[in-house]
């Protein structure tokens, strides 16, 4: 290929990729732009792409008119605790599945894995009944506990445990360490990056979850951010400026986490096929 056609090809590539980026970014841009417009400006046609007189009015409104701060707090509590517990149970079982030998190990492991095939909605109604029989409707434990063990997290960590050479443990056993010490002193420090990656995913799944909170929360002050946003949309009439402000606030934490840990995200998808 001559140099000139090469430059042409690269320019064309960039043009197409920029057009693609435009479609990917436009909904974000338009949401953000609308969230800073006053009611009057939102209804104006011809429309303007950027707010003429940017205002924080919509943001003030969602934090004063509806308990959006409470929704955020609920989501933070639920997502962080879910992540923490999910990682804890997964580390223990991934260790057992990859390192300990016991009767029925593989059968149990495959049974765990098979749960990934069950569509979530199939289980939700009986799960709801179980949770309500515990008296956990409208509680944090109701939102958190059912999600504290998942096959995906266990499977993901097990794959990483398998990559650690056995010699390391043997040395520790000779030094008189028991399994729990081996796990906390050798495995966890070595697997910090993997644990962090899966933690970010767990947090994201939990933060973005919608169907489960929809079922088990029916009082406003226990709503998570996604549920609060959806309810606000169906109950709030035509407050588009406020809807968009709510959408921005609900999305920002995940986008920030994504920007910080971008490399981990992409790498672990290519390694294991985790899905957003």
């Amino acid at each position: 290929m001559s140099k000139r056609t090469n430059i042409r090809v690269i320019t064309l590539k960039h043009l197409i990729l920029i057009a693609g980026s435009f479609f990917m970014l436009f909904p974000f841009f338009w949401t953000l732009s609308t969230s800073f417009k006053s009611l009057k400006e939102i209804f104006k046609n011809p429309f303007s792409l950027l707010p003429a007189n940017p205002t924080f009015g919509n943001y003030v409104a969602i934090f004063t008119k509806i308990p959006f701060a409470r929704y955020l707090l609920n989501s933070f509590v639920v997502a962080s605790l879910t992540t923490l517990l999910q990682i804890a149970t997964a580390i223990l079982s991934a260790y057992a599945f990859s390192r300990l030998e016991f009767k029925g190990r593989d059968l149990i492991f495959y049974t765990f894995l098979a749960t990934m095939m069950i569509p979530g909605q199939l289980l939700m109604i009986p799960q709801y009944l179980v949770v309500s029989s515990f008296g956990w409707v409208n509680t944090y434990q109701g939102l958190i506990i059912p999600y504290t063990a998942t096959a995906v997290t266990t499977f993901f960590l097990r794959q990483f445990f398998l990559t650690i050479p056995k010699d390391l443990e043997d040395a520790a056993v000779i030094d008189g360490c028991n399994e729990l010490q081996i796990l906390t002193k050798i495995f966890i420090p070595l697997l910090k990056p993997a644990v962090l990656t899966i933690a970010i995913f767990s947090f994201m799944w939990s933060w973005n979850g919608y169907f489960w909170p929809l079922l088990i929360v029916n009082v406003p002050n226990m709503r998570t951010v996604q549920l609060g946003l959806a309810m606000f949309r169906t109950e709030g009439g035509m407050q588009w400026g406020q809807f968009m402000a709510g959408t921005v606030v609900a999305t920002l934490p995940i986008l920030i986490a994504y920007f910080i840990a971008q490399r981990h995200f992409v790498k672990s998808i290519t390694l294991t096929g985790l899905k957003g």
């Binding site: 990917m24 909904p27 949401t31 709510g246």
Partner: peptide, 30 residues
């Protein structure tokens, strides 16, 4: 580019639906 193309994947379906809903509103949508 990669970062931009992946942004919609991490966005919650609810938030994304809000944005699309607004874009495709029949009277005021862009």
């Amino acid at each position: 580019y990669r970062m931009i193309y992946f942004m919609p994947v991490v966005t919650s379906p609810i938030a994304a639906a809000m944005g699309f809903n607004w874009i495709f509103q029949s009277q005021m949508g862009i």
